[in-house]
Design a protein around this nucleic acid. Structure first.
Lengths: 372, 372
DNA sequence: CTGAAAGCGCTAACAT
DNA sequence: ATGTTAGCGCTTTCAG
C-alpha cells in the first residue's frame, strides 16, 4: 500500500499458511446462564433488578456508582450482575444522556508512519478525558472523507479530529452548528472556519531549501505531493521563497508535484537528475517522497544532496544520514485533541490557527556539496 | 514513545509555535435554522415529519431507502431533511436494531510501525462490511486491555479483534456467550477458546537463526521482548530449536528477554557483544529490537551479523542491508477481520488457529561471516 | 402507500 | 434509601 521494500534481494518462504482446529471441549460455556441469557440477548438492568429483588433505578445507581444505596442492597445487586453477566448498554445510555464519550479521527492512511504517532497521541488525550476513539481512513479521497465524517456524526461522536482530504467542508456546517466539536490537523479546512493545528510547512521547507543553498547548491529540485494538498503547496511556496531569497531562478523542470507512490516519485527524480539542466540537490516534500528519493540517489554514482520534509526512522544510519525538516506528529495530534476537549468543555473561543515549529536536523545528506 | 531518532547531530528550531485568530465574520452560521435547531439539540425524525406534513414512519422509510413511498412525498421529506439539517441518530437506531455495525480493535501501540498496516487492513475489511472501527491501545498493559475491551462491549460493538496484552481472557466469556464475535491476532488468547491468527514465530525464528548458523556462526545472541509475550517465547523457542539442530549449546548470557525500549536493548546487546564469550551474531526478536541493534552494531568496529524478526522500512538501504524474517502485518489483520465477519455472518465453526508463513529476506547483515 | 402505537435499555425527575 | 414514571429517537408491528 505504501510500496515499501523495493530493494529486496532473496526471498524464501519458510512455511505455508496452516490452519488447525482448537480443542473445543465445551469448557467455554458455563452452565450457570439464566434462561434469558441466550445468544445475542443480553440481560438488562430490569433483569438484574428482578433477580436482586430491587427496583430498576437502584440497579442504575449501583452500576453508575451513585450514592444512596445501602451496602447490603449494593451487594445483592452486584451479585445479580455477576450471575447474569450484565454489562450496561451504552447505546441506550447515550440516547438518554446526549453525549457519547467518543470522538472521531479521520486521517489519510493509518499505515503511513506519520499518522501512527499522531493517532496514538489523539487517543491518549481522549483516554485522559474518558473518551473512546473511532478511527477512519479517507485514503485521500474527498468523498470517502465526507462519508466517514457523516457516519461519525450519525453515531453522535462528541467531536471530530480531521486531517482533511477534501477542500470544501461546508457539509460540516450543520454538524458544527449542532454542537459537534471539530478540529482540523495537518491541513486547514476548506470554506469554513474551524480550529486548525498545522506544522509550519512554509517555514520548514524554506529553511530546508536555504540550507541546501547555503551548502552551495543552486540547481535544486522539489518533489512534492499532489497540488490539491495544502501542505504540498505550502512547502513548494517555501521552496520558491528560499530560491527567490537567493535570487535563483527556478527552472520549472526542477519542480514536480503529484502522487507519492514510488513509481511516480522515482520517475520525477530521475527526470530532474538527468535533464538538460540537472539538479544537484533535491528537496523531498514528505516522508514517502524522501524514502523513494533516497533509493534513487543510492542507485546513482554521482552524489546528490537531499533534504526531506518529515523525519524517517533510521534516517541517521543511512550513509550519508538523511537531513530532514522534522515535524512532531505526536505533538500535532496532542494539540489538536486538547483543543477539541477544550471546545467540549464549553470554551467558545473563536477558531484559531495553531502553527507548530519544525526542526532542521542535519545528518549529512543535506550537506553534500554540489557535484558537476 | 518509541524512542526513535537517537543519533541526531544538529537540531535547529525554525520557528516558535504561533497562534492566530481566524476571521470569524459569522459567515459559518446561516440564518435558515429553525427554532428547534439550537446548540446541541438536533432535529429528529419527528421534526422532519412535522415539517414535511407526513407521518414519522414515512420519514424513516425515506431515510433508510425503504420501498413504499411516492416519489412526491419522498421529495417533500427530502426537502424537510435538508432544510432542518437532519442526520439520523444511529445511537437510537442501534438500540432498536441490536447491531451497531462497528467493531473494536485493541492493539498495543498504534505508533509501532507494525500495527499501522495491521490496523489499516482491519479497517478496510470493516469498511467493506459497512462497519466502523473503534480503536484502542492497551499499551501492553493487561488491565488497560480489559478495561478497553469491556468499554467496547458496553458500546455493543458487534465484534472484537484483539492483540492481547493479558494472558487470561476469561473475562470475555460472558461477552462471547452473548454473541460478541472475537478474533485474536498476533498472539493467542489465554484460558479461553477463540479464533486466533498468528505468524509462524517459531518457524520464522528457527529459520532465521539457522541462516546465521549456515553462515558459520555458533555464538549467536537472542534479544527478545518480555517473556510474558507469546511471540517472544515462541521466537526464543525457534532460536533454541535451531541451535539444538546444529548441536550448539546455548550460553545463557547470549539470551536476553525484556522490554524493547532502546536503553534496555542497547544494554543487552552491548553485554552479549563484550562478555566472556562474545557473540558474533544477533537475532533480534522484533522490529523495535532490530532498530536498536542496528545502531549498536553500526557504532562498533568489528562486524556483527544480524537477522531481525519483522521487516523494517529502509532495511535494504543500510549497509549492510538488514536481513529479516518478515511477517505480513496487513495480511494478519485482513485474515483476522475476515474471520470476524464470517462469525458475524453466522458461521459457527469451532475456533481455529490460523498460522501465516514468514519470509526470510536476505540483504547482507545476516550473511556477514563470524569475526574473531 | 401511509401512519399510530409499542418498546429497545437506559437515566432524569419525581414520588414514596 | 428506594421505586415509579416518562421519555431519549429510532424501528417494528400492525392497522388503515
Amino acid at each position: 500500500m505504501t510500496g515499501r521494500q523495493t530493494g529486496q534481494r532473496t526471498v524464501a518462504e519458510t512455511a505455508r499458511t496452516s490452519v488447525s482446529r482448537l480443542r473445543s471441549d465445551g469448557s467455554s460455556t458455563d452452565g450457570t446462564a439464566d434462561a434469558k441469557r441466550r445468544y445475542g440477548n443480553r440481560p438488562t438492568m430490569k433483569d438484574v433488578a428482578a433477580r436482586a429483588g430491587v427496583g430498576l433505578k437502584t440497579v442504575s445507581r449501583v452500576v453508575n456508582g451513585e450514592p444512596g444505596v445501602t451496602p447490603d442492597t449494593e451487594r445483592r445487586v452486584q451479585e445479580a450482575i455477576e450471575a447474569l453477566g450484565f454489562r450496561r448498554n451504552d447505546s441506550a445510555r447515550v440516547l438518554r444522556k446526549g453525549r457519547t464519550a467518543s470522538i472521531g479521527l479521520v486521517l489519510e492512511d493509518l499505515a503511513d508512519p506519520f499518522y501512527g504517532p499522531l493517532s496514538r497521541a489523539v487517543e491518549e488525550v481522549a483516554r485522559a478525558h474518558g473518551a473512546l476513539l473511532i478511527n477512519g481512513s479517507s485514503a485521500e479521497d474527498p468523498d470517502r472523507e465526507q462519508e466517514l465524517v457523516l457516519a461519525l456524526c450519525a453515531r453522535r461522536v462528541d467531536g471530530l479530529v480531521i486531517i482533511p482530504a477534501a477542500d470544501d467542508h461546508r457539509y460540516l456546517e450543520p454538524e458544527i452548528a449542532a454542537g459537534v466539536a471539530t478540529v482540523f490537523v495537518d491541513r486547514p479546512p476548506g470554506r469554513i472556519d474551524a480550529d486548525v493545528v498545522l506544522s509550519d510547512s512554509f517555514g520548514g521547507a524554506r529553511d530546508g531549501v536555504a540550507h541546501l543553498i547555503a551548502h552551495g547548491h543552486r540547481r535544486i529540485g522539489f518533489i512534492g505531493d499532489q497540488p490539491r494538498i495544502h501542505t504540498a503547496i505550502e512547502r513548494l511556496r517555501g521552496y520558491r521563497a528560499a530560491m527567490a531569497d537567493a535570487e535563483i531562478e527556478v527552472d520549472e523542470s526542477w519542480v514536480s508535484l503529484g502522487p507519492t507512490d514510488p513509481e511516480r516519485v522515482r520517475h520525477a527524480a530521475e527526470a530532474m537528475l538527468t535533464g538538460a539542466s540537472p539538479v544537484t540537490a533535491v528537496f523531498a516534500g514528505n516522508n514517502r517522497v524522501t524514502v523513494t528519493v533516497v533509493r534513487v540517489i543510492a542507485a546513482r554514482t554521482r552524489p546528490v544532496a537531499l533534504v526531506g520534509f518529515d523525519d524517517i526512522e533510521l534516517a541517521d544510519l543511512l550513509s550519508p544520514g538523511v537531513t530532514v525538516v522534522a515535524q512532531d506528529a505526536a505533538q500535532l495530534g496532542r494539540t489538536a485533541a486538547e483543543r477539541l476537549f477544550r471546545q467540549l468543555d464549553g470554551a467558545s473561543d473563536a477558531p484559531e490557527l495553531i502553527e507548530l515549529p519544525t526542526r532542521l536536523i542535519t545528518r549529512g545528506s543535506g550537506e553534500v556539496p554540489p557535484a558537476g
